[in-house]
Amino acid sequence: MNLIELRQITKTYGQGQAQFQALKGVDLVIEKGDFVAVMGPSGSGKSTCMNILGCLDIPTGGEYHFRDVQVEQLDRNQRALLRRFYFGFVFQGFNLLARTSAQENVELPLLYRGESSSERRKAAQAALEQVGLSQWGHHTPVELSGGQQQRVAIARAIVTSPELLLADEPTGNLDSKRSHEIMELLVDLNQTHGITIVMVTHEPDMAEYAKRIVHFVDGNIASDTRHRPLRAEEIINVLE
């Protein structure tokens, strides 16, 4: 089942002489349950594509189907509602609310969904447990390490059980050990909870965790390789 379908998506910034075409007719289909890594040099259009996928921006031309919805026809508030109920976001800079406890940060999306405080607390605790931070709920971001902050951010993204998790360089601000931990967490969410993930990264070894790698070059998709990365235990399984 196709979760996302992009057809001939273009995006143009500016006008006249200063006009710049960031996307030049992108076709992309993402199935439910997929784990896609988006790669490419800066200025290749991968961030623009992510913004459009995340309904934060609208394309200049083309069609974007999310499930049965034609996203490019929605207005600002309708897109906000789509994000609220179907999307989760993880950013490079974590983007947690300062001076706000991890628990409250994770509860934030539920607040906008209008859920009661007891439901919010329960769901947030479950999400924190899923990312392995059940003991850290009352800590504020400054009291947490970078890796922990990103885990809180992931908990915030998955607390609503979204259809699609969009991660914009989730490991960009982390050292290699923490990066691998975060990637394993994402793989787990993808495999055991069936959350579709689209992740921008420029680190090839992080992209290796994904099931599929899409390369952007100059506003177009240059390559789209489906590969099933073999992880250590899988190799062992094969050998046995």
């Binding site: 600002r76 509602l81 994000r83 609220r84 983007n95 609310l97 300062a98 934030l108 999306p109």
Partner: peptide, 16 residues
């Protein structure tokens, strides 16, 4: 501004 951005990304409506 960043916080507002987070809220909007998470799905807060303009009016909220």
């Amino acid at each position: 501004t960043r916080e507002i951005g987070i809220r909007l990304a998470i799905g807060a409506l303009e009016r909220e």
